[in-house]
Design a protein around this nucleic acid. Structure first.
Length: 525
RNA sequence: UCCUGAGUAGCUCAAUGGCAGAGCAUUCGGCUGUUAACCGAAGGGUUGUAGGUUCGAGUCCUACCUCAGGAGCCA
């Protein structure tokens, strides 16, 4: 068990070292035995590999040490890489020597076994649960989602401007905030959105985004809620609602594309049905339920090119440029995509912003609140949902689940009644009772992953709304200043990272999407 | 905050109101191709807490605690 001079490699790279003697640095993940044979499985954070240790082939000390070793003991192991169809990964390691770094005591064995555990036990041992293959895979996918999200904005002319985490007042005056003392007499609150601040940076820099933690003290106990979560928020000057929806669509498409590029193996470990993700980024989906949902019977033709069409609206100041080598094409709308749009885009929606805004490709279905309401009415009449939806009310979770279940792609619901929406949302000029806002509902019932809107750009109207919502005018004076000095139409959205990860990984609960989830009843470990 | 459900061995779970059980994990033994290995044996319990009903309570009743996931609200 002396130090060797063999090459130190990761398990993920082992297939490139077949026939070589290599050294791994890892942990004992599992061990089985059959007579004088040991089958230890090692993990190192990049993957797992089965070793084989015949008693006759190794020094007695190596065999005895491994045989008595507890799971999750740390070690280095040296051996020869060999392809073998009997090994779970297709390769196995003929162990020659091992060096124990830290042995786990049998008095207190590693608590996470390969058998089933309950939620409470796993969350209480989250620091150790993270070592299991599935949890590690989820965190790798999360990292790619976060990187791809930032990358999309970084490569499309956005400047990252991070807002403060400590704020003097409620951003929207709705959600409950975490309060803390701020020196002698003041109170401070943990941010629940950086939106108001990045409206300021957007008017300074044009296209900006922020990416950071967000806190909500709501007493929500569901599979979709954390009290601390990460949100990425773009905000764009001179952008209106339709352009915002185009942006959200291209953004989500980019993220899903990146995950599919490099995480097939992780998604398999997680048990994700990859076809559902592939459907999201396909140019069109002839088998989608779009046609039936609108009951037009229109045949939706697929575009002729197999690439992904990302079409930027002209005149909005947004340049949607795909990174090279990704297989993403930036193309003009095809006849097919325009035809597709005519099926699902609200009538007149494209006219709202005038001729400066081109129609969108509409690979993601877009429904107005009214259209979504009609869909729910029909569903209730046909007995497909339990409770009727009252026109004028927000959609409940079952409503959102039903709507999103009608499509294989994320669905954008826009122009909700302004009455239950945030004070800063721009009214629809065609119907001032509606707000120019959009929620993006993930498929498969994952619910809202993006919420966004065009913001009020009129000083007088914004002031009136602040007063109507009984918000302290003084605290919002700086925000009103943005409308006093060179106000322009602008819009933005926020995407909750954990909900996006839960959807893309197909998880039951957001608590598995973040290394250490903060929920209503848990702040340990 | 409301509704519903669950707390029994380290873990996952059994147990008509009548002797506290199994699998995994741990320890010991067996097995030269195991795949959450398997086979044999041993150790391991204040049944969430506090009361109550009963000859007898893990089981029934009351209160409380903890957790779960749904509503509301939200990403």
């Amino acid at each position: 068990m002396s130090e060797t001079s063999s090459l130190t490699v990761t398990i993920a790279s082992l297939s490139a070292h077949e026939g070589q003697t290599v050294t791994l640095r890892g942990w004992l993940y599992n061990i089985r035995s059959s007579g004088k044979l040991l089958f230890p499985t090692f993990r190192d954070g990049t993957g797992t590999i089965q070793g084989i240790v015949p008693r006759a082939a190794v020094p007695e000390e190596v065999f005895e040490t491994l045989k008595n070793l507890q799971l999750e003991s740390s070690l280095t192991v040296t051996g020869k890489v060999r392809a073998d169809s009997r090994a779970p990964s297709g390769y196995e390691l003929d162990v020659e020597s091992i060096h124990i770094i830290s042995a786990v005591s049998a008095d207190e064995p590693f608590p996470i076994t390969l058998k089933e555990h309950g939620v409470d036990f796993l969350m209480e041992h989250r620091h150790l649960w993270l070592r299991t293959p599935r949890q590690s895979a989820i965190l790798r996918v999360r990292a790619t989602i976060m990187r791809a999200a930032a990358e999309y904005f970084d490569t499309n002319g956005f400047i990252r401007t991070d807002p403060p985490i400590l704020t003097p007042n409620a951003c929207e005056g709705t959600s409950e905030l975490f309060e803390m003392d701020y020196f002698d007499d003041d109170k401070a609150y943990l941010t629940q959105s950086g939106q108001l601040y990045i409206e300021a940076t957007a008017l300074a820099l044009g296209k900006v985004y922020s990416f950071g933690p967000t806190f909500r003290a709501e007493k929500s106990k569901t599979r979709r809620h954390l009290t601390e979560f990460w949100m990425i928020e773009p905000e764009v000057a001179h952008l209106e609602l339709n352009g915002l929806m185009d942006l959200a669509e291209a953004f989500i498409t980019h993220i899903v594309t990146r995950v599919l590029e490099s995480h097939r193996a992780d998604l398999k470990v997680i048990g994700r049905d990859v076809e559902k993700l592939e459907a999201v980024i396909l140019p069109t989906d002839a088998s989608s339920k779009v046609a039936t949902a609108t009951d037009t019977g229109t045949n939706i033709a697929a575009p002729t090119d197999a690439g992904i069409n990302v079409i930027a609206p002209s005149g909005t100041g947004i340049n949607i440029a795909a990174p090279t080598g990704t297989g993403i094409q930036v193309a003009a709308p095809t006849d097919a995509s325009i035809k597709n749009e005519s099926v699902i885009l609200s009538e007149g929606a494209a006219e709202v912003e005038g001729p400066a805004v081109k129609t969108a490709p509409n690979r993601f279905p877009r429904l107005s609140y009214d259209e979504a309401h009609a869909m729910l009415e029909k569903a209730f009449a046909e007995g497909k949902i339990e409770n009727p939806h009252t026109y004028g009310d927000d959609f409940g979770s079952p409503d959102e689940t039903y709507i999103s279940s009608q499509f294989s792609k994320p669905v954008m619901v826009h122009r909700y009644p302004a009455a239950f929406k945030a004070f800063y949302m721009q009214p629809d000029p065609l119907d001032p009772t509606k707000a120019l806002c959009v929620d993006v509902l993930a498929p498969e019932g994952y619910g809202e992953i993006i919420g966004g809107s065009q913001r009020i750009d009129s000083y007088d109207l914004l002031k009136q709304r602040i007063e109507e919502h009984n918000l302290p005018l003084a605290a919002f004076q700086w925000y009103l200043d943005l409308r006093k000095y060179g106000s322009v139409p602008h819009a933005g959205f926020g995407m909750g990272i954990e909900r996006a990860v839960a959807w893309i990984c197909g998880l039951d609960h957001v608590r598995e999407t973040i290394p250490f989830a903060r929920t209503l009843n848990r702040i340990y470990p």
